[in-house]
């Protein structure tokens, strides 16, 4: 299925929760959805017979200056089609539903996005830092991140 067909079908089911479909990009087309109904949308994407997206290739956190974003790259093992799904969350209250119960691989990906970007996934069973030390401060991949002077008495600059 092509991205715009998926978009039409999702639109008929979820109405205004599906925001836009971008097929102008040079390479990858994507669909932007609202974060409120994300869990239900993802559930449909996995279980509906037309979609069957059972393989979450990647989940990336993004810093889009005024917003934060999460990008889901989906793939279907049976139907061999792909989809790029995006949600935006405001920087002041970066919360979006967790899809960990739909694709179990999302567990670590979401922890990573939380660690490096500071996006909070509601409903995640164990949302703690994964790469940085547990007592690290700040979210390093944000554009406005300032590297701390020292960590446990060790200087971070050379």
């Amino acid at each position: 299925m092509l991205t715009n067909e998926i978009f039409e079908k999702l639109k008929s089911e979820f109405g205004e929760n599906i925001l836009e479909c971008n097929d102008q990009q040079p390479v990858d087309h994507f669909i932007v959805v609202k974060s409120e109904k994300l869990f239900e949308i993802c559930h449909t994407l996995r279980d509906d017979d037309d979609f069957l997206f059972d393989y979450l290739m990647s989940l990336s956190g993004m810093d889009l200056n005024e917003n934060l974003g999460v990008v889901y790259h989906l793939y279907s093992m049976k139907l061999k089609h792909k989809l790029v799904l995006k949600v935006m969350v405001p920087k002041t209250d970066p919360k979006t539903p967790s899809v960990e119960r739909i694709w179990r691989t999302a567990d670590w990906h979401e922890r990573e996005a939380y660690d490096l970007m500071g996006i909070e996934f509601t409903g995640h069973h164990n949302l703690i830092r994964i790469l940085c030390p547990y007592d690290w401060e700040g979210h390093p991949l944000r554009k406005d991140y300032q590297t701390p002077e020292s960590y446990h008495g060790m200087k971070t600059s050379s």
């Binding site: 790469l131 940085c132 390093p140 991140y145 590297t147 060790m154 200087k155 971070t156 600059s157 050379s158």
Partner: peptide, 20 residues
């Protein structure tokens, strides 16, 4: 020895083990 390729922006890399 000194942080190697990660000496500049490596926020999580110790710049040389001789610091400890």
């Amino acid at each position: 020895n000194c942080g190697g390729p990660y000496w500049e922006h490596g926020y999580h890399v110790l710049k040389g083990v001789d610091k400890i």
